[in-house]
Every structure is written in structure tokens, then in C-alpha cells.
């Protein structure tokens, strides 16, 4: 299954929303590549680590735990 590896590679913990779920992804990997691999549109999410934004060119490494936070909201206006 995508993102799960049986090898002893670096694992990045990823929390997703709507629905809330957790994944472990093989690292190291940049934010831009991570979003592409998860088929997520960069316009529709932000990546947060320890309460701070993580820029797209940053590489995630050992024991990083991030949240991919959706920014799209709203019903009828």
C-alpha cells in the first residue's frame, strides 16, 4: 500500500483531515513531492509542524510529524 514500507527507512508521520487519519511515509521527502504523491493540490492545503507552517521546498526527515491541513471550506453563501 502506498506510503507504507516494510524497510527500516526514515518514516514521516502524516496526519490528514476530512476524514481524520494518520499515515507513515517513507522519507526523506520534500513537501512538494509529498503532496504530489498524495495527489493533493497545493492550493487546497497547508503543511503544519509543531504549530508552524512548513514551506514547500523543505525536506522532511527522521521522526518528523506533520499535519496536512485542508483550507477549503464552506457551504452555500
Amino acid at each position: 500500500m502506498f506510503g507504507l514500507s516494510a524497510c527500516d527507512h526514515v518514516r514521516v508521520k502524516v496526519r490528514l483531515h476530512n476524514p481524520r487519519r494518520d499515515l507513515e511515509i517513507e522519507g526523506p521527502i520534500t513537501i512538494i513531492n509529498l503532496l504530489a504523491r498524495l495527489d493533493l493540490n497545493r492550493e487546497a492545503v497547508l503543511v503544519v509542524r509543531d504549530g508552524e507552517l512548513v514551506p514547500g521546498d523543505e525536506s522532511l526527515a527522521d521522526d518528523d510529524a506533520i499535519e496536512i491541513r485542508p483550507v477549503i471550506s464552506g457551504g452555500e453563501q
Partner: peptide, 29 residues
Amino acid sequence: ERETAAYCIVKGIDYIVDECPMSAGNKHL
């Protein structure tokens, strides 16, 4: 809205992240 969400994160403003359960699948989204 990516910028308004980023603004809240940078300013330390806590907000409800999960989407309204009634809005799933609506046309606007």
C-alpha cells in the same frame, strides 16, 4: 483561503479545522 488559514496559524489563532459535516459533497466545494 489558503492565506487566511496561514494567517491564523502564524498568528496563533485556533479555529475549527474540520469541515461542517452537513457540507460534504455540496456544489460550492
